[in-house]
Design a protein around this nucleic acid. Structure first.
Length: 586
DNA sequence: CCGAAAAGCGCG
DNA sequence: AAAGCGCGCTTTTCGG
């Protein structure tokens, strides 16, 4: 481990400091590390307080308000590579408050590199530095946190001159530069270069998407919230009067149902009686409380998770949600504040809060059954692939194979069972879980899966192959993992539990395809219209005069017709004024 | 008073 | 033989 003693950390206070910084800035170095300290996490309300530059040996802290011109001058004079830890955050801040754009092609990010090298580890700058550079890397952080709590300071009020603050800030760039030195060779050694380049390109697209946001109808959201609160209050009062129960307390619900002679059997993970949606749906036939509780949950969810957060989190009528590029271990993105990837689609109510600006419309483009198609590709199931190629829905094809229907259409029930079987394979479910979700008896489930295995032997072979590779890797490296076609490494969380790797491979490969397509669409000029990414769907806000062009470009760029044994095709929706238009009332 | 765990539910 | 995968948010509950 290298030492941190010889590092020079400076703050710019005087003109002499500034001249010294300019000299330092002009020196040759492999890469410039860049960081900012801000008042908080939201670019639209929290200002930049400090900008930091550094390399492996030196770090500079530059108070933003005093030296804004100098910072702009220096960054304009530099066109070499820049590395940050979660650089997109700092890009957004410096773009907003200094008008500085760092071109994507020269950006590097140690958080992205860390995730690609080992997605199971910690990705924070401090934990990574403590492990890979020096344990002392966390001390500065701890001292600053202590000073802040002792004095009641937060990120907006901690004095810039406080040594704990500015040295902490300056050191971050040194740690980032050193992590970069450690990670880059590993990226090559592990064969992750192409994937890293892809992720950096995605980062560039997201950096611009961060400023786009989604228009939300505040009056509508407020109205829906008010209506919901009234209904929630009524339900609370009613459940209290009738049964002495808080409908939000599962404990009380269980106790009351049992006291009234209802037999509960399903258990939660920790052994309590489960009263989830499925259970209460059945109980509702015998006890009115169950139905009331289900109503209460749905309305509370809509009101508080969605409408209330729309109202609290919007800025000027737009939601700028937090997009985590590597939010999931599989390589998927995630979205928080608010959770825009999880908006209900059973009815139009929540999604109708989203609309296009005057003179624009919403367009959505999403892959058709991308995970199932990738699954069929991995399994190399000739019959299944042939049917997909001929345009038949994959679950229909599965039902036709398993029930020996030839080309005849299956019943709804048959297709549903086949669909559940496919999902159980993709997710790695067992017999009992399959039977439960399919809603069929254990005997029938067993019989169906037996037929499934015989009809589609490639599925079993694929599972076996994943298992074999993972076990071999565990023998040779001590860790069970598989690699996707993109090169992405998927580790088993538990070496003794490797079946989820089948799902990781499928989910992760779908994410890889999606990310590549996001970049290609941006290259084709569609980046400025992108508002939202939902795993396999991109939502765009498009000016009316560009809708035809955008639709044509997306239709030609987004599908992936060559990489897999079946084409990954794309469906389009729109133009829409409101996002919920296409969703039928539940 | 705060934080974590558990349960539940929304999405792909 | 057996295993549902990945997320984010709210509410209740409980312990420090």
């Amino acid at each position: 481990m290298s030492d941190l003693n010889d590092i020079g950390l400076r703050i710019v206070r005087t003109l002499d400091d500034a001249l010294e910084l300019k000299r330092w800035f002009g020196e040759r170095r492999p890469i410039l590390a860049f960081d900012t300290e801000t008042e908080g996490l939201h670019w639209w309300e929290h200002r930049v307080r400090m900008v930091q530059f550094g390399d492996a040996m030196s770090g500079w802290a530059i108070p933003f308000d005093d030296w804004r011109g100098l910072i702009i001058e220096l960054m304009a004079s530099y066109d070499g590579p820049v590395v940050g830890h979660n650089l997109r955050f700092d890009q957004r801040m410096i773009k907003t408050y200094a008008g500085i754009t760092i071109e994507p092609h020269r950006c590097h990010d140690t958080m992205i590199a860390a995730h690609l090298i080992d997605c199971t580890g910690l990705h924070g700058l401090k934990p990574l530095s403590a492990r890979l550079i020096h344990p002392a890397a966390v001390y500065g952080d701890e001292m600053l946190k202590k000073a802040m709590s002792d004095n009641g300071w937060n990120w907006a009020t901690v004095p810039i001159d406080l040594p704990e603050y500015w040295t902490y800030a300056a050191l971050d760039t040194v740690l980032t530069a050193r992590l970069h030195e450690i990670f880059q060779p590993q990226i090559d050694e592990l064969g992750l270069r192409d994937l890293y380049e892809l992720e950096m390109a995605v980062s560039g697209v997201l950096a611009r998407m961060d400023h786009h946001g989604s228009l939300v109808d505040l009056d509508y959201a407020q109205r829906k919230l008010d209506e919901s609160e009234t209904y929630i209050a009524q339900l609370r009062a009613y459940c209290g009067q009738q049964w002495g129960v808080n409908p939000g307390s599962d404990q009380q619900v269980v106790a009351r149902l049992q006291a009234d002679g209802i037999t509960l059997t399903s258990l939660t993970q920790s052994g309590a009686y489960s009263v989830d949606k499925d259970v209460l749906g059945v109980v509702a036939l015998d006890h009115e409380l169950a139905g009331r509780v289900l109503d209460f949950r749905r309305v509370t969810k809509y009101a508080h998770t969605y409408f209330r957060n729309f109202l609290e989190l919007n800025h000027g009528g737009r939601l700028y949600a937090g997009v985590r590029q590597l939010g999931a271990r599989t390589g998927r993105m995630s979205i928080e504040d608010p959770p825009l990837q999880q908006l209900p689609k059973r009815g139009p109510i929540v999604r109708n809060a989203f609309y296009a600006a005057e003179g624009s419309k919403l367009m959505t483009f999403d892959f058709d059954q991308i995970e199932m198609r990738i699954f069929a590709h991995f399994a190399q199931e000739a019959e299944m692939l042939r049917k997909i190629l001929s345009g038949i829905d994959i679950h229909t094809a599965t039902a036709q194979g398993c029930y020996g229907l030839g080309d005849a259409m299956p019943t709804k029930q048959q297709r549903s069972t086949a669909k559940n079987a496919n999902f159980s394979k993709v997710y790695g479910a067992g017999l009992e879980r399959f039977a439960a979700t399919a809603g069929i008896h254990l005997d029938d489930a067993k019989a169906f899966l037996d037929t499934y295995e015989i009809t589609f032997p490639g599925v079993r072979a694929f599972q076996r192959q994943v298992e074999g590779v993972a076990l071999e890797r565990m023998r040779t490296t001590g860790r069970a993992f598989v690699r996707a076609p993109s090169g992405r490494i998927h580790y088993a969380l538990d070496n003794d539990k490797i079946y989820p790797l089948v799902n990781y491979l499928i989910q992760g490969t779908a994410a890889d395809v999606f990310k590549r397509k996001i970049v290609e669409m941006d290259n084709a000029g569609l980046g400025d219209f992108m508002a939202l990414l939902v795993h396999d769907e991109v939502v765009m806000e498009v000016p009316d005069e560009h809708i035809d062009d955008v639709t044509a470009i997306a239709a030609s760029v987004m599908p992936d017709l060559r990489s897999f044994s079946v084409p990954l095709t794309v469906g389009a929706e729109g133009p829409l004024v409101r996002w919920g238009e296409r969703y039928v009332d539940a």
